[in-house]
Structure formats: structure tokens, C-alpha cells
């Protein structure tokens, strides 16, 4: 969601999804997580947790996170339910990346567009500080892709965007050694 916020503020058309079976948030103890189905509005979750234990959920940052999220979008969405209409998909965890690839292998159907979908994983540790760093890294990549896309549209370009993506990823990886990349080309 941090990446969603960064991209949205930069003016990109962006959607965000979860790849699990439900939304899981830390609960009062490790074996009692708060589980919500996808589609439950952030605002609703916020109010419920605030009523449950405002001290705990303020201390562990959950309320702040939910507050940020409800300003970005209404409710968490599930990847597997969504219609794919993107140029690039960023995942922030290897597990999600593999889940997205597997899903695309499953849902690939004839008759659909053969448009390439660039799936990129930027592996981010799941804490607030790293989420901010990772979000900025993803924004950088997205900006670089936009530039590259414009360059490759020029009449005298010697490579297409699809060819030059690897160069951008290499340069980016060299600048961000602690955010390991994965990349794959799927079809919408």
C-alpha cells in the first residue's frame, strides 16, 4: 500500500491487490490474528479495531496504517478476482510474485489479448520503514519505465520498450542492492 500511495501521488493509474485468501492483521496475540474477507472497507476495519483496543492498535501502528489505506482506496482487493488491465505489475514479496505468475498461467486463455504484462518483484521487508524505502524504489522504477517508453516510441529508436526493460532493471538493481528483483513477462 505504501507503493500504491507513492505511485498514486506521482500520478500513475494504479491498483493494489492482495494474493492471499483473506486480509490478515495482527491481533491481540500471535495465534489470534484479525481476519477480514477481501472487500471489507478499510474504514470499517479501522473503526472495529479502534473500538476493540485503541491502545494496542495505536502502539503497533495498525491504526495509522489503516488510516493511510482508507485515504487511498475503499477496501482491500484480491488479485485473483481482478481483471488484468495493466502494463506493469509490481509485487513486494517473492511469494506474491510466484502467486501472480501461477495465477497468470492458470487464467491464460485463448482469445484474450496477447499484450505483454511485465511482472516485477521488488522484495521488501514487511515493516513501515522498509515499506517507505521500497515504495520509493518502485516509484523510481515506474518513472524510469515511463521515460523509457517515451524514448522507445521515437521513430529512430533501435529497441522497443520490451527489449530495453532489462537495462533499466540492471541499473536499478545496481542502485538498490538490498531490494532484490525478480522479473517475468506474462500475457494479459
Amino acid at each position: 500500500m505504501e507503493a500504491h500511495r507513492a505511485l498514486k501521488e506521482a500520478g500513475f493509474t494504479v491498483d493494489s491487490f492482495g494474493t492471499g485468501s483473506a486480509v490478515r492483521l495482527p491481533g491481540p496475540s500471535i495465534d489470534k490474528p484479525n481476519v477480514y474477507p477481501f472487500g471489507t472497507p478499510y474504514d470499517e476495519i479501522y473503526k472495529e479495531l479502534e473500538a476493540q483496543d485503541p491502545k494496542l492498535y495505536t502502539a503497533n501502528g495498525i491504526l495509522a496504517m489503516l488510516d493511510r489505506n482508507r485515504k487511498i482506496k475503499t477496501a482491500p482487493q484480491k488479485w485473483h478476482d481482478g481483471d488484468i488491465k495493466f502494463d506493469v505489475v509490481f509485487t513486494c514479496e517473492e511469494r506474491c510474485f510466484e502467486s501472480v505468475l501461477d495465477d497468470m498461467m492458470t487464467r491464460a486463455e485463448s482469445g484474450k489479448s496477447g499484450k505483454a504484462l511485465h511482472v516485477i518483484n521488488v522484495d521488501i521487508k514487511d515493516d513501515h520503514e522498509n515499506a517507505v524505502i521500497g515504495g520509493q524504489g518502485i516509484l523510481e522504477l515506474a518513472n524510469r519505465f515511463t521515460e523509457l517508453y517515451e524514448q522507445c516510441r521515437a521513430a529512430d529508436a533501435l529497441m522497443s520498450f520490451d527489449d530495453a526493460v532489462m537495462d533499466v532493471l540492471t541499473t536499478w538493481q545496481e542502485a538498490h542492492p538490498h531490494l532484490p528483483l525478480l522479473y517475468s513477462v506474462c500475457f494479459e
Binding site: L101, L169, L182
Partner: peptide, 24 residues
């Protein structure tokens, strides 16, 4: 036409997709 870094990355990328594919 590619740097060692690019080569290492694309090797990693193909391996990972292949892994997901085989599991699938």
C-alpha cells in the same frame, strides 16, 4: 551486448519463472 550484472539478473529471472512453471 549485456553486462555481467544483466546476465546474472536474467539468469535469475528465467530460473524463477521456470521454477514456478514446473511447480504449476
Amino acid at each position: 551486448y549485456e553486462s555481467v550484472n544483466t546476465f546474472k539478473l536474467l539468469r535469475r529471472f528465467v530460473d524463477r519463472t521456470l521454477k514456478v512453471f514446473l511447480n504449476h
